[in-house]
Design a protein around this nucleic acid. Structure first.
Lengths: 247, 247
DNA sequence: CTCGGATTATTGGTATTACCAATTTCGCGA
DNA sequence: TCGCGAAATTGGTAATACCAATAATCCGAG
């Protein structure tokens, strides 16, 4: 990528080597001087990459000893790249359900007005508009809980949704076929407006339940198509056409 | 701190200046060369500190333009230092309650055995033992959900509990007077063993409800003592003793 | 032969200097 | 006043030097 900083590319490559097992957890990375030769960059650039990895708690640096790979599950990052769209969605259903219930009790009229605006934007046909409105809607609810820890956790869930390639792809695949979005958010809004905690929780659960069903359907469809592709390939592989034509 | 790396001290000082408002959110940090002069270190050391801040998503760096302060709520760190012990505990009650309910459905016999062992360790008189057992107990439950996203979120809640000075102090203050710990965790364990999701959720809620009550009591006690200290000081300030003795 | 201490080698830590790339600011001319 | 080009400023990368901490090796004594 043009203009991308060199240390970031090095970080990505080192992470890839950690994930592939080349640099095992608990083991030592090659020395800075060797990494600099290997990646054909200067040693300060390597140092910058290592500082970033350290800030992300992917490595631990011991003076005079070396750079050691940490277990990624303890990272500040908190993103395990193997998290599936189902796991994320289930966690969101549980957490955002509780947040909606609490928000129903605490929400202000200003926040209700913000939700109403987001609902309108959610009906827009442009993906960038309705996706931002969707995010805004959920964020207002997390704020309405009046609990900054919950707000932070829900932000993290959205961060995973947006940045994990696997999850992002899965959500994109079901997004264009999403016809219930507005009505479901409308149900959530009505429950909040009525300050009905139980209804808010239920509406949020139903919203995510439908998303999980869509994810399942999309995965099923993908696997059927993958099998069909494989059959086409086998048909081509074992057809007798090339035997006939080669004579 | 002897042996502490220079760039980390610089990171801490820059974060303190951001938090104090000296470097406002959205604004630009002084240039690298100026920061190097200000902190009396070399420019590469500043660069290392800035790389770390960037990895933590506290700042954004624009080539030729400058280093800009990001809103901390969007940080990977996810820790807002103003999060109160009440907010953390409320969030834990809600999230860990749901996790316990799900774990009741999914838990394995091996995991139940792990919980039993942790329960025994929780009765130990040594703080280091029962605190680790407490943490282990909750971690096994998060693992038992079979949802890595939930596990990661609950790890993050524990991380906040352990690393936020404010929260850590509050929990320490109620820890020594904690006489219900074992029986409450026993209730949670029994519900899980019986695979009763509803009972597990309720037991977890009661566990945290009692913690919140203890936190309130401790805060109340602290405020009463602060008022009493103030009264003692006023009494000393306005007593006529010094007038008598000075004649 | 083994063990301990001293020495050497290795690895990370910090600084100085140089030069390049991108952006912003300033000055000049239309 | 506005637009364009040049200069200044700011971040990006590299090379080199030397220091601090740790690990490895070697040598001598028991």
């Amino acid at each position: 990528m043009a203009g991308e900083r060199l240390y970031k590319a090095i970080v990505d490559q080192i992470i890839a080597s950690i994930d592939s097992g080349e640099f095992p957890v608990g083991g030592r990375l090659p020395p800075e001087r060797e990494l600099a030769e290997r990646f054909n960059v200067s040693r300060p650039t390597i140092r910058e990459a290592v500082i970033a990895l350290e800030a992300l708690e992917r490595v631990e640096v011991k003076t005079g000893s070396g750079i050691y790979v940490l277990e990624s599950s303890q990272g500040l990052n908190g993103i395990d790249s193997s998290i599936s769209p189902f796991e994320l969605t289930e966690a969101r259903a549980m957490i955002e359900g509780e947040a909606a219930a609490l928000a129903a009790v605490m929400i202000t009229n200003e926040q209700l007005a913000e939700l109403e605006q987001a609902l309108q934007d959610m009906a827009d046909a442009r993906p960038s508009v309705y996706e931002n409105a969707d995010k805004k809607f959920h964020h207002v609810i997390s704020r309405a809980t009046g609990n900054k820890m919950l707000e932070g956790i829900i932000d993290k869930l959205w961060y995973v949704r947006d940045t994990s390639p696997r999850v992002h792809r899965a959500y994109q695949a079901i997004c264009e076929t999403d016809t219930s979005r507005v009505s479901e958010h409308q149900d959530i809004f009505e429950a909040l407006k009525n300050r009905d905690a139980k209804a808010a929780r239920t509406a949020m659960h139903q919203h995510f339940s439908r998303i999980i069903n869509n994810l399942i359907a999309a995965e099923e469809k993908e696997q059927v198509e993958a099998i069909q592709r494989k059959m086409v390939e086998s048909r081509e592989r074992f057809s007798l056409t090339h035997l006939v034509t080669s004579e």
